[in-house]
Deep mutational scan, measured.
Amino acid sequence: NQASVVANQLIPINTALTLAMMRSEVVTPVGIPAEDIPRLVSMQVNRAVPLGTTLMPDMVKGYA
């Protein structure tokens, strides 16, 4: 099963992502692949992401 990127904390809108904000977890539906975590660092979210939410490509500016 593919691990996805999950929010490790509440991430406010327009926040630049850091490693501490993300974790890898096997979830359904599948979100951004966990191997993309290094690429996500310093990218901004375009909405508030609650703790435990799977990051989807449309939630991260410049990812999709």
Score class of each variant (00 low, 15 high):
I11C: 03
V45I: 08
G52N: 14
A34W: 09
M43C: 04
K61G: 08
P33M: 10
N46A: 10
E35S: 11
I11Y: 01
N1I: 15
V6K: 04
M21H: 04
R39Y: 14
N8I: 12
A20I: 15
V6Y: 02
P57Y: 10
M43Y: 14
M21C: 03
N46K: 13
A20S: 15
L19F: 13
Q9F: 10
T28R: 02
N8R: 10
P38V: 13
K61N: 08
Q44V: 06
M43Q: 10
V45C: 05
M59P: 02
L19Q: 11
I32W: 02
Q2W: 08
N46C: 06
V49N: 01
T28C: 06
L40Y: 02
A48I: 12
S42T: 14
N14E: 14
I37D: 00
R47K: 13
T15Q: 15
V45K: 00
I11A: 01
A7D: 00
S42Y: 11
N46H: 10
N14C: 11
V49I: 13
G62S: 09
E35Y: 04
P12G: 15
G62A: 15
V60D: 02
V6S: 02
L40F: 02
Q44L: 14
L10S: 12
V6T: 14
A7Y: 00
M43R: 08
G52P: 00
I13V: 12
G52V: 01
P57D: 07
P57L: 05
A16W: 10
L40R: 00
V60H: 00
P38R: 04
T18S: 11
V30S: 09
I37V: 14
T54C: 04
M59C: 05
A64D: 14
A7R: 01
R39T: 05
R39D: 03
V41E: 06
V26S: 10
Q9Y: 07
V45Q: 01
I37T: 07
V49Y: 02
A7P: 02
K61M: 10
L17Y: 00
M43T: 12
M21N: 09
N46G: 10
M22P: 00
M43D: 04
V60S: 01
S24W: 06
A48K: 05
G62L: 08
P38L: 11
P12Q: 15
L55R: 00
N1Y: 11
Q9I: 14
L51A: 10
L51S: 13
Q9E: 15
P33W: 06
S4D: 00
I37A: 10
K61R: 14
T18M: 11
T28Q: 10
A64K: 13
P29T: 05
L51T: 13
T54V: 09
P33K: 07
D36V: 05
V6E: 02
N8P: 02
D58N: 13
A48F: 05
L40P: 00
N46V: 14
N1K: 03
I11Q: 01
V60L: 08
R47N: 13
Y63A: 05
T53S: 10
Q44S: 12
L17V: 05
S24G: 12
E25K: 03
V30I: 09
V41N: 04
A20Q: 13
N14V: 03
A16G: 14
I13N: 08
P50M: 11
Y63W: 12
D58T: 14
Q2H: 12
I32M: 04
I37G: 06
G31C: 03
V27M: 08
M22E: 02
V26P: 09
Q44H: 12
R39G: 14
R47T: 09
K61P: 12
M22C: 03
V60R: 00
L40A: 01
P38H: 12
N14M: 11
E25Y: 04
I11M: 06
K61T: 07
L10A: 09
L51Y: 08
T54W: 02
I37C: 03
A20K: 06
P38M: 11
T18N: 10
E25T: 06
V49H: 02
V30T: 09
S24E: 12
R23L: 12
T15Y: 11
M21E: 02
V5L: 04
S42W: 10
P57E: 08
S42M: 10
R23W: 05
R23F: 06
L19T: 15
E35F: 04
N1A: 15
S24F: 08
A34F: 11
P50K: 09
I13H: 14
P33F: 08
R47G: 05
R23M: 13
T53V: 10
V30H: 12
P57K: 09
M43I: 05
M56S: 13
T28I: 04
T15K: 04
T54P: 05
V5K: 00
I11F: 01
L40D: 00
I32L: 05
L55N: 01
D36H: 09
I11K: 00
L51I: 11
I32A: 03
L40S: 00
L51Q: 10
L55H: 00
S42L: 11
P29M: 07
V49S: 02
K61I: 14
A48R: 07
M21L: 08
P57C: 15
T18L: 07
T53A: 07
R39Q: 05
A34T: 08
P50Y: 10
M22H: 00
P50S: 13
P29F: 05
P33T: 10
M21D: 06
V49R: 03
M59A: 10
V27I: 10
S4N: 01
L55S: 01
L19E: 09
A3E: 14
P29G: 04
A16H: 09
I32Q: 00
M43L: 12
T53F: 09
A34Y: 12
S42F: 09
L19I: 13
S24L: 06
T15D: 12
S42C: 06
T54M: 04
A48H: 12
A48C: 05
A7V: 06
L55C: 01
V41G: 03
V45W: 00
A34L: 04
T53D: 09
V6H: 02
M56T: 12
M56E: 06
I32N: 00
V5G: 02
L51N: 11
A64Y: 03
L17M: 08
G31T: 01
A7N: 02
V49T: 11
N14Y: 10
M43E: 07
M56H: 05
K61W: 08
L55V: 09
V41D: 04
A16T: 05
E35N: 12
R39W: 05
D58C: 15
Q2A: 11
V60E: 01
S24A: 12
L10D: 14
G52F: 07
A48Q: 14
L51H: 13
G62R: 09
D36K: 04
L55Q: 01
A7H: 01
I37N: 02
M56W: 05
G52K: 05
M21K: 05
N14H: 12
P12W: 06
A64E: 10
G62Q: 11
Q44W: 08
